[in-house]
């Protein structure tokens, strides 16, 4: 059973056990436009919550992706490096960025669930 959490910087983290898969939200990919380039963290890298973990670029914008929680990088999604368009097509599925082994799961309490994130987005309009 997994649960998805969201940040105000428009990242999501899907947590199963002590592992979290991280990507950017549909809102974020729409704001960026066609993604042309992704830079992912190295496997084994220890990331603190809020640390710059990845870079995502469209033709007109470049944005840092921050780690929603602390942990160690255990996997990265080579598919989005080869086909950055996956992030536009399926941001919360095939367009994931990397996964972490969580070192401090209590940080999840600070994040939003989907309903809270949707409400947060409504507030941005």
């Amino acid at each position: 059973m997994s649960t998805v959490y969201f940040t105000k910087d428009h990242e999501w983290v899907k947590v199963t056990g002590d592992e979290g898969v991280i990507g950017i939200t549909d809102y974020a990919q729409k704001a960026l436009g066609d993604v042309v380039f992704v830079e992912l963290p190295a496997i084994g890298l220890d990331l603190a919550q809020g640390a710059e973990a990845a870079v995502v670029e469209s033709v007109k914008a470049a944005s840092d992706v921050y780690s929603p929680v602390s942990g160690t990088v255990v996997a990265t999604n080579q598919a989005v490096v080869d086909q950055p368009g996956l992030i536009n097509e399926a941001p919360e599925e095939g367009g994931w960025f990397f996964s972490l082994r969580l070192s401090n799961p209590s940080e999840l309490d600070e994040l939003m669930d989907r309903a809270a994130y949707d409400e947060f987005l409504t507030g941005l309009e």
Binding site: F37, E57, S58, V59, K60, A61, A62
Partner: peptide, 12 residues
């Protein structure tokens, strides 16, 4: 590849 450049990246 202009995302490397100052008008987008500014101080980065």
């Amino acid at each position: 590849l202009s995302t490397r450049e100052q008008h987008i990246r500014r101080e980065k």
